[in-house]
Design a protein around this nucleic acid. Structure first.
Length: 595
RNA sequence: GGUUCCGUAGCUCAGUUGGAUAGAGCAACAGCCUUCUAAGCUGUGGGCCCUGGGUUCGAAUCCCAGCGGAAUCACCA
């Protein structure tokens, strides 16, 4: 049982016996005492005043006296206004540390047969362009969220829905046919996703030129010229052929998609994210239609005169929403209904989480209502894990203005920066030559991942490509460094030091602070799972590493004369390193043993 | 205009179910490497927590109104 709970229960007993106030221990949450005051845990006594009919100071005094007399863990206390600061017996903290060390998976709840099954959808790329910074945030958040939910005892299925069909793919295909001269990833030495992306851009370039030409020739606006465009017409024709299953178009489409997937796989692998099940829109986009027609029969949806099918959501404070076009084809929303249906056929999902940007808040609000209307009982409970945009100093990323930050390039740059910085004296000491690249990769990506994951997912965040991401201060490398330094310490210590029995040791204040922080890991993981926030873990690990660094500078460890103190500090260091590694594991960040 | 989200140091961000004198990092300035890894540590300066009301022992946090910013409101995905 955690120390917080012990105190909460003892306090509940105290107010019951002193003031006959019935309080659930869960309602009492001791907080860590502020640094300026003496003590480890603080209880705010204001809520008890109505029952005690006494002044805050007196009430706190009485509860404090009760705790000292009746709770073994409590050593002493002091009272400031309505705050009861409790000091726990030092020996108790030793037992807390030993407990943490004895649990091989401290902070992680096991997955059992009756665990909830959660499906997390993330990434969801289009196959006509490479991944960019926005996808990076999505991927990192999605992967980390899956890890955190797993650590909270859920079965997790990570899934990806690849948008592999539609007009945008046809644009790339058309441009490749017209101007590609049979270029392949092999012939150009380019990653497949970048190659296809280039043709998408090329299409847009020619299309713009064509519009300008038509507008000038015919004396009409460029918007009006859109209807006259032969390029766009050809692209649409190609889409029709694709939908009709034209063998040539399908073959080309398959070939080009393979190139893109090979490119994506490389990026995903490097980023360290993975999926358990991938869905392709080309295989699911027809599925939703049947459900919509079923809903139409039941009268939940209605048909307009032109044949299009709509949902009336005005009762829920929303608008009317199109579900089937007048020509009978599906829209985005219909496809999502279909994909959801398939997924629930494939897995006994208890909860569905979509990791999708906040630009689609409305879409998921509608989807939730629609799934409910067509009779899926889980529709209402779906979670849209909505995250904010990544902004650049001059606003959003715009492909037209060439301000898109490419994921592959960004990762390259981060690793290059790590390499450049490692030239400073004292860096990468004792790292074998063959491991160096691997360590640099961990550091560069660690900096990038931590930079993105430490901010609250809901908020828009700013990324300045000019100022490269920091490696000092509140950063991934700082935390990795702390871990590497502890590993080095442990390599240098004697095995006798670690096997020394420390049960009787009474830790000093600085040590207690660290033990207390370590113990918090458990509740931080729980809280991160409840509020779907990797940022909580990130900030916790930073605080832990920072506190350890201060401790490291203040207390010599290997040179400590007292054998028990030395052993305790090494044990403590070992657990700090373990929790750092475990916490970073939940963020998908690797930690090197030397750097 | 409707809906949703955001507004905290010069910059990037934390701030636990409402708790004590609002915290980090960067940037600036001043120190610390003959010492278990200086990607580190110590110190200084820097704030109308957007504004105004309300709720109460107590508000950056909850409620209402306003101001400012973002997203969205397609027979695009």
């Amino acid at each position: 049982m955690s120390i917080d709970k012990i105190i909460a229960e003892a306090t509940a007993q105290a107010v019951h016996s002193l003031y006959e106030l019935e309080m659930s221990p869960d309602a009492i949450t001791p907080q860590t005492t502020k640094k300026e005051f003496e003590g480890n845990l603080t209880i705010v006594v204001f809520p008890f005043l109505k029952a005690s009919h006494k002044r805050p100071e007196e009430t706190a005094q009485e509860i404090g006296d009760y705790l000292v007399a009746n709770c073994e863990a409590v050593e002493k206390f002091n009272v400031i206004k309505g705050f009861l600061n409790i000091t726990i017996k030092p020996s108790f903290w030793t037992s807390v540390l030993l407990h943490i060390a004895s649990e091989p998976n401290f902070g992680i709840k096991p997955v059992t047969d009756d665990s909830k099954l959660v499906m997390v959808e993330y990434s969801s790329p289009n196959t006509n362009k490479p991944l960019h910074l926005g996808h990076v945030r999505n991927n990192l958040l999605g992967y980390s969220l899956a890890k955190i939910l797993e650590a909270n005892g859920n079965k997790v299925v990570k899934t990806n829905i690849v948008n592999d069909r539609g007009i945008h793919i046809c644009k790339s295909m058309l441009a490749w046919l017209k101007w590609g001269n049979g270029a392949t990833p092999e012939s150009t030495g380019k990653k497949g996703d970048h190659l296809i992306g280039d043709y998408y851009v090329l299409f847009d370039k020619h299309y713009k030129a064509e519009l300008k030409q038509i507008a000038a020739d015919r004396g009409i606006s460029e918007e009006e010229a859109e209807k006259e465009s032969t390029l766009m017409h050809e692209a649409r024709e190609m889409l029709k052929k694709w939908e009709a299953g034209d063998p040539e178009v399908r073959a080309l489409w398959r070939k080009m998609n393979e190139w893109v997937y090979a490119g994506f796989d490389e990026t995903y692998k490097r980023m360290g994210v993975s999926f358990d099940k991938i869905y392709y829109e080309s295989e699911t986009y027809l599925e939703g239609k049947e459900k919509v027609l079923e809903g139409l029969e039941k009268g939940v949806f209605y048909r307009k005169d032109d044949g299009s099918v709509w949902a009336d959501l005005t009762a829920d404070g929303l608008d009317h929403k199109l579900l089937l076009r007048s020509d009978g084809t599906s829209v985005y929303m219909t496809q999502d209904i279909g994909t959801a249906k398939l997924r629930y056929q494939d897995y006994p999902i208890d909860q569905m989480i979509y990791v999708v940007g906040n630009e689609q808040n409305y879409h998921f609000q509608v989807l939730s209502l629609l799934l409910d209307k067509v009779g899926f009982k889980w529709g209402k409970d779906l979670i849209h894990f909505s995250y904010g945009m990544v902004e650049l100093p001059n606003g959003k990323m715009k492909s037209r203005e060439g301000t898109v930050v490419d994921a592959d390039e960004l990762m390259d740059e981060m690793i290059d920066t790590a390499r450049a910085m490692s030239n400073e004296p004292g860096r990468l000491v004792g790292v074998p030559e063959e491991e160096k690249e691997d360590v640099l990769r961990m550091i560069g990506l660690g900096a990038l991942k931590y930079f993105i994951l430490k901010v609250d997912p809901r908020k828009n965040m700013l990324f300045n490509p000019q100022e490269s991401i920091d490696f000092n201060g509140n950063t991934g490398p700082f935390i990795q460094y702390t871990h590497a330094r502890i590993q080095s310490l442990l390599r240098k210590c004697d095995t006798a030091d670690l096997s020394t029995d420390v049960a009787q040791y009474e830790p000093i204040e600085k040590e207690v602070e660290l033990v207390q922080r370590l113990a918090d890991f458990e509740s931080v993981v729980t809280e991160a799972g409840k509020s779907y926030s990797p940022a909580l873990i990130a900030n916790y690990v930073f605080e832990l590493a920072k506190a350890y660094n201060q401790f490291y500078h203040d207390c010599s460890i290997l040179k400590e004369e007292n054998g028990m103190a030395r052993a305790f500090r090494l044990q403590l260091s070992r657990m700090v390193a373990t929790v750092i590694k475990r916490g970073f594991g939940l963020l998908g960040i690797e930690v090197p043993d030397r750097m």
